[in-house]
Design a protein around this nucleic acid. Structure first.
Length: 560
RNA sequence: GGGCCUGUAGCUCAGCUUGGAUAGAGCGACAGCCUUCUACUGAGCGUGUGCUCAUAAGAUAGCUGAAGGUCGUGGGUUCAAAUCCCAUCAGGCCCGCCA
């Protein structure tokens, strides 16, 4: 926010610099390392720093310029900057932190992408929260965002659940067995897999059913639609619980044959070649070559993705297409981009695979097939229960309704924050107990900081219009203010670099800063002007926490 | 066999893109603090279930302090390497006419 002020000072003295560092606050607000000039000027960086410091003139914004070793440190005018930041936050409110850099551009974020043969699991939770936050961040940076969900509703795995229904569960419905509908279908799938281990011929039957589906066999389609609806109904409930929504749904059943023309086109132009046995492949050195169409002329997963990409880029004129998909598909997306480029589509470069690692539990790995997955609905219920226990411990007389609302905010907040706070590229160890803790680097810790602020503001009763920000001279409140000032940069960086976890780290820093300040600087009992200034600071910090949590898709309860 | 990713304190993680001032957090364990907002107890007021004051001991959703490190290992580049390059070890993922 204030970097330009320092640049202005440098420019006036005729010193060119590419960038400044943000040093330890003890040294100053910005630092210019002088190593870079040593070669050119043929002097030791320490001496250069001394000379620079003499040449540079402080101004209204930059109050001190101090050489220190090989660095020139700049100290900003606290009164000026603090006043500016406070006023800005209180004026922009929920818009504070956003910018318009993406104005007129649009981006599609595809995430979640469930299969209609089983409920969402823990991995989907990570996917969902990453996708949602990515969408929020792009929007905060001024982009038009389209949240898309690609539903995988066709394929042999779907037929397996259908077969299990037909063979052993005819006539049953989710209602009749009191199950959430997607769980009902998931159980069918597990039942099939277990049976197929003993009777391998079942696999062949599933293939046969898939052929019937592909031939649009009436009875098969009726069954398929029934199971598909159950799954989608179940997903809707889960999404509602998580607070996830989409602007656009794509169904594989509707697009899976669409890529055929693209393959033929590429074959004609020489981009693709035929294999000996009549299939079509793309040679995309240095990546492994990729088969695009079977020798019977049917399409594959990648063919469908090619078609879908074309569909999207023509319909929406996208400036960026983000796929939130697990890291196991890294190669697939590399190949997809390479193949599209081979077809001459320049926009292939705008496809970004937002890859993320697996989620483990302390107890060990989760593996599907046997049904040993951690279910999304179950984990959310567990988190809410843990949160409810904590709430009741502290407010024994709370009403069930209030308790449920708080438990939802805290439990889901804990889950979400824990998943977002780690670099997406890394595998993640999810520990429910640790995540719900009010201490440490957790969602509840941040939420709690916000609740404390609300409590104080509530008690303050009045809110002053004008304040003297220069009264905020305590070390902790100066640091807090500089955190507040840093929010817009964090919003920008975590978006362009897909570093959602840096936003989490930032919010933790703000919450910690708030608590440290809170312990040392009383607000309500401070004398008039100081109290007023601190109330403003409090509201500004609260705004930043609320905005930040909002980006993460986490509720900011006013009481906990 | 080949490709991609990860390896930083007992545990969970930042920092690596763009090399720079003593390698940062959190949990845990250790030692303290309690101030106004969190919690306990008491007194007074109120009776719009809250407010004010005080609090020995103890607690903690808060705070402070100290402890804890061959940055997987070995080499190289550089004035300077957790960061860049090479090799190597360990773990994960991928390499299908599956999705």
């Amino acid at each position: 926010m204030f970097e330009e002020k320092v640049f202005a000072v440098l420019k006036k003295a005729g010193i060119s610099a590419d960038g400044l560092e943000v040093p330890d606050p003890r040294f100053g607000d910005f630092a210019l390392p002088c190593f870079q000039y040593a070669k050119e000027l043929k002097k030791a960086p320490q001496i250069i720093a001394q000379e620079f410091a003499k040449k540079l003139k402080p101004n209204l914004w930059v109050s001190q310029i101090i050489p220190q070793g090989a660095y020139v440190n700049f100290v900003l005018n606290k009164k000026k900057t603090q006043e500016y930041v406070l006023a800005l936050v209180l004026k922009q409110k929920e818009k504070y932190g956003t910018n318009k850099s993406g104005k007129g551009k649009s981006v599609m974020i595809e995430f979640s992408s469930p299969n209609t043969n089983k409920p969402l699991h823990l991995g989907h939770v990570r996917n969902n929260v990453l996708g949602r936050t990515a969408a929020n961040l792009w929007r905060a940076n001024g982009f038009k965002v389209i949240k898309a969900n690609l539903v995988n509703d066709r394929g042999v795995h779907i037929c397996k659940a259908m077969l299990a229904y037909d063979l052993w569960n005819k006539g049953k419905t989710p209602e009749s067995v009191h199950k959430k509908p997607d769980h009902f279908v998931g159980d069918l799938y597990v039942q099939f897999c277990q049976a197929a281990e003993k009777k391998p011929e079942l696999e062949e039957q599933a293939q046969e059913l898939l052929r019937k589906w592909e031939a649009s066999d009436k009875k098969t389609l009726v069954l398929w639609k029934k199971l598909r609806k159950w799954c989608m109904d179940g997903f809707r409930t889960t999404y509602a619980e998580m607070g996830i929504s989409f602007d656009k749904y794509y169904y594989e059943s509707q697009i899976w044959t669409g890529g055929k023309k693209l393959v033929e086109q590429g074959l004609a132009s020489g981009a693709f070649v035929k294999t000996e046995d009549g299939a079509v492949k793309a040679v995309i050195d240095p990546l492994p070559e990729k088969i695009l169409m079977r020798n019977d002329g049917t399409c594959l997963y990648i063919t469908q993705d090619m078609y879908l990409a074309l569909l999207r880029f023509t319909e929406f004129k996208l400036d960026q297409m983000v796929h939130v998909v697990a890291s196991e598909q890294n190669l697939h997306f590399q190949q997809l981009k390479a193949v599209l480029k081979k077809l001459g589509y320049g926009w292939a470069d705008k496809i970004y695979h937002f890859s993320y690692g697996m989620v483990h539990l302390p107890e060990g790995k989760m593996k599907s097939r046997t049904g040993q997955v951690v279910d999304a609905d179950d984990i959310m219920a567990e988190m809410k229960q843990l949160a409810a226990d904590e709430v009741k411990k502290r407010h024994p007389d709370i009403s069930e309704k209030d308790c449920a609302a708080r438990a939802h905010a805290i439990g889901l907040g804990a889950l979400t924050f824990f998943m977002l706070r780690i670099d997406p590229v890394k595998d993640l160890l999810y520990d429910p107990k640790e995540s719900i803790s009010f201490e440490g680097e957790t969602g509840p810790y941040v939420q709690y900081a916000y609740a404390r602020i609300c409590s104080i503001l509530e008690k303050a009763d009045t809110f002053p219009k004008k304040v003297d920000a220069s009264l905020l001279i305590h070390q902790t409140e100066k640091e807090l203010l500089s955190h507040v000032a840093g929010f817009p940069v964090v919003v920008q960086d975590s978006c362009v670099r897909y570093d959602i976890h840096t936003l989490c780290q930032y919010l933790l820093k703000v919450a910690t800063g708030l608590n440290a300040w809170y312990a040392q600087c009383p607000v309500l009992t401070a004398v008039h002007e100081l109290r007023d200034a601190r109330l403003h600071l409090l509201r500004a910090v609260g705004q930043v926490l609320a905005n930040g949590l909002g980006l993460l898709g986490i509720e900011a309860p006013t009481v906990m």
